[in-house]
Design a protein around this nucleic acid. Structure first.
Length: 786
DNA sequence: GTGTGATATCTTTTT
DNA sequence: GATATCACAC
């Protein structure tokens, strides 16, 4: 499968000619690089580390380096380039295509850590007793499974919160701690005991076993198992060491221990490894990234060549200096002096708003004015925020001014319920052992198989060591307690899935996908819902089927390295191939070409590696940015500061910062101080205005209730309560014993007592209609009656 | 077993 | 505000 490709002589001649052309072009291009960049590009042999300051042409170095290698005659199949996001991989690929043409570029092994390792595991996974068609569990699947395990072990689900346990397991795997290591490590066990969760290790054990039985790997397994493979099968290791004679790693500062070790192993034979990164932009330690990997890289390779890229080509002097003034407050860093020869540029503007809604309006207005004054397209602007939840207020404001925008991340396409449902059908058809997929769809659309039945099936499955699907097939014998009619329903379901399964190789992905969507009743179920959301769900499902169609008709895969030997394109591409390709696509990886001219809104994390002429960083408030979760330790604060650094350095021309004095956070109003980061920027870079910028001539539009939104759960007709007149929310502090209040549902009442603090303030209220109630104030939305 | 409404919990950041 | 979970009626 991975043997060298034979090239016949004619092809070879063509190739030589072609390479000549590249050589000319490369020399031309090398002239455009500065000295440090050139050195980093041409030092192709031996270990190399490139410390690349923000905007210093990092991607350029990586792409030119690959082009340079190809130019020297390196076989593209022998180059491995690892990135963290699909977007980064795709962009790099596109740029290399521009440099060397598509044939060579396409054959470079380039992708995210996860996708490349998934590919290797599909080929070699049998060594670890995984089938090639294993499922990849996303975070929701993992948490669901953990939730079930906790339930089965009869542990307290509040104590053993799935998210908490999952991050614990994830951290263990990222550090290559096996189940046995975990259970045998007294330190870890002690910390679990102190946290009052002594059974965490046991959950890890069950989780691991259940994933394995379901032929499923989670994201961490893709790294963990690759490591296992390379550790325990020396021949396999050697095979890939030989194959990947040149290795490049982007964003090296964000690697975790597992990634570090895999790269180290793969590079051990040739040591032609080039890592590129910037310690100042390390923002993923919450995901196990270990900044020491880059700080200590030298220790692993004594003859390491290090190049520092310190000239920033992206931003104005003001932005670069402001960013430097921020990052210099951090202690842990590799010394470097980022500078630029660009213009001084505009000062940083700070917008102050009273509320989050006003902040949105100010930002939208500012964008509108800048657009008009400077005749800029929408795509010149990016709005960056700390949390996805902040996008709502911004969206509303932009909609009001009719400025087109595009949100990246957040509820991505593949996370929508209807999409996950449909995909769960596909998953089960491809891999019937996929228990999580089974649970998701066994009774959707409703087919009379309820919780009790599913519980019985689960029990039978675990007693017999088989998958739930297997148990369902044998429902009549394995689960005697079931009613005859129930068994009949179960058999109908399993027969349907099995029928689809046999069609896998015979039909194209699209044909089979369409058939599944139809005969499962999914489409009918969706069509029955004529509400606005129902229609959009229908559209989304159709969109997925369209993607299947495109996929089926596509002649070549994005990664033809899959089929180095077989270039047989006549077989139409099947559903299991489709599932392999999309399971690692998360964010809106689909790029709509016609959606180009829009303002970008995204989290700062998502913005890493991107650049925009105008950048707005919003929500600069204590407890939000820096996040309240990060105030505990210096290391955490430093990471938030690096995040701010990343945000600032996305900008080419101008940065605008904003904050709101109050904002709605999970339902109720909270007041926050302006962020400490505002003070940390040297004030000489900030435009000094005391003038409060107003949000436009019709200032009160912000406050009006927009009639555009249709309430999701339409009230029943007999509920003739008048439309809520501009209800003023009552600050929680004003709720005191003795006060008369009104509740939306319970009506009027009197506060008897108030207890608790912070977000958990509770009030005991006596309502005339319903009697005494205890209410959490942050949800109750009490209104004071005068 | 299904469907409804009330209640509880929740939010960093992502492959 | 949005979603998972629980309790209860059918």
């Amino acid at each position: 499968m991975l043997t060298t490709v034979c090239i016949n002589t004619q092809q070879a001649r063509k190739r030589t000619l072609f390479l000549q052309k590249i050589a000319d072009r490369l020399n031309e291009l090398l002239d455009q690089l500065n000295t440090a960049q050139q050195q980093a590009v041409v030092s192709s042999e031996g270990p190399v580390m490139v410390i690349a300051g923000a905007g210093s042409g990092k991607t350029r170095v990586l792409t030119y380096r690959i082009a340079y290698l190809l130019n020297k005659g390196t076989d593209p199949f022998n180059i491995l380039a690892l990135t963290f996001t699909n977007k980064a991989a795709r962009e790099m690929k596109e740029r290399i295509i521009q440099l060397v043409g598509s044939n060579d570029a396409r054959n470079v092994w380039m992708g995210t850590f996860h996708s490349v390792f998934a590919k290797i595991l599909r080929i070699e996974g049998h060594l670890l007793e995984y089938p090639h068609n294993f499922t990849i569990y996303d975070t929701d699947d993992s948490k669901n499974l953990i939730k079930n395990i906790v339930k089965e072990m009869q542990l307290d689900p509040k104590l053993y919160a799935p998210g908490m346990i999952f991050s614990r397991i994830s951290a263990a795997k990222s550090n290559l701690i096996s189940v046995d290591d975990y259970l045998g490590n007294s330190e870890i066990m002690e910390s679990d005991r102190i946290a009052n969760r002594p059974m965490t290790g046991e959950i890890y054990r069950f989780y691991k076993a259940r994933c394995f039985k379901a032929s499923a790997m989670d994201f961490d397994d893709l790294l963990y198992n690759t490591n296992l493979l390379l550790r325990d099968f020396p021949e396999t290791l050697l095979k890939y060491q030989k194959k990947f004679s040149y290795i490049l790693v982007d964003e090296y500062q964000d690697t975790n221990h597992a990634q570090y070790l895999i790269v180290k192993k793969l590079a051990a034979r040739n040591e032609n490894i080039c890592v590129v990164g910037d310690d100042a932009q390390s923002i993923y330690s919450f995901r196990g990234a270990n900044i020491q990997n880059i700080l200590n890289f030298r220790n692993d390779y004594p003859d390491l060549q290090t190049f520092k890229l310190e000239q920033n080509y992206r931003s104005t002097k003001t932005i670069v200096s402001a960013a430097n003034s921020i990052i210099s407050r951090n202690k842990d860093q590799i010394y470097k002096q980022v500078w630029t020869s660009n213009d001084e540029g505009a000062l940083i503007q700070v917008l102050r708003a009273a509320t989050d809604a006003e902040e949105g309006a100010l930002v939208a207005n500012s964008v509108f004015q800048a657009k008009m004054n400077e005749q800029l397209p929408n795509s010149a602007f990016a709005i960056l925020y700390r949390t996805n939840a902040q996008s709502r207020a911004l969206e509303e404001a932009f909609r009001k001014l009719n400025i087109p925008y595009r949100i990246y991340g957040g509820l991505s396409f593949y996370k929508r319920k209807e999409i996950k449902d449909l995909l769960a059908y596909f998953r089960l058809v491809v891999n019937p052992a996929d228990d999580e997929a089974f649970y998701r769809i066994i009774n959707y659309p409703a087919r009379g198989i309820g919780n009790t039945t599913v519980d019985k099936l689960t029990l039978a499955a675990s007693e017999n060591g088989i998958s739930v699907f297997e148990a369902a097939i044998q429902a009549n014998i394995a689960v005697p307690a079931l009613a005859k009619s129930t068994v009949q329903k179960i058999i109908e379901f399993t027969e349907m899935i099995r029928a689809f399964h046999t069609q896998l190789a015979k039909m194209s992905a699209y044909e089979l996908g369409r058939k599944i969507a139809t005969s499962s009743g999914l489409l009918k179920e969706l069509a029955a819902d004529q509400s606005e959301e129902g229609l959009s769900r229908m559209q989304n499902s159709e969109e997925l089927l369209n993607a299947l169609k495109d996929f089926s008709e596509l002649e070549q895969t994005l990664f033809p390295a899959d089929n180095e030997e077989t270039t047989d394109n006549t077989v139409s591409r099947t559903l299991d191939l489709f599932m392999q390709e999309i399971s690692l696509l998360t964010d809106a990886d689909s790029e709509d070409e016609d959606e180009n001219n829009k303002v970008t809104m995204m989290t700062i994390h998502a913005a890493k590696g991107l650049e925009f002429p105008h950048v707005y960083i919003v929500g600069l408030e204590e407890n939000l940015f820096p996040s309240i979760m990060s105030l505990q330790s210096r290391a955490d604060i430093e990471e938030e500061r690096r995040l701010f650094y990343v945000a600032l350095t996305r900008a080419e021309k101008k940065v605008t910062l904003s904050y709101a004095e109050s904002r709605y956070r999970w339902g109720n109003l909270s007041m926050n101080e302006p962020s400490r980061f505002l003070d940390e920027i040297n004030s000489s870079f900030i435009e000094q205005t005391t003038r409060r910028i107003r949000s436009g001539p019709d200032n009160n539009t912000v406050m009006q209730k927009a009639p555009v939104f249709i309430k999701k759960n339409l009230k029943k007709i007999n509920d003739s309560s008048p439309a809520p007149e501009n209800r003023s929310e009552t600050p929680v502090e004003l709720i005191q014993p003795g006060i008369e209040v009104e509740h939306e549902r319970f009506g009027k009442g009197k506060v008897l007592s108030v207890e608790g603090s912070g977000p958990n303030i509770k009030a005991t209220v006596f309502f005339q209609a319903v009697g005494q109630k205890q209410l959490l104030l942050k949800y109750a939305r009490l209104r004071i009656v005068n």
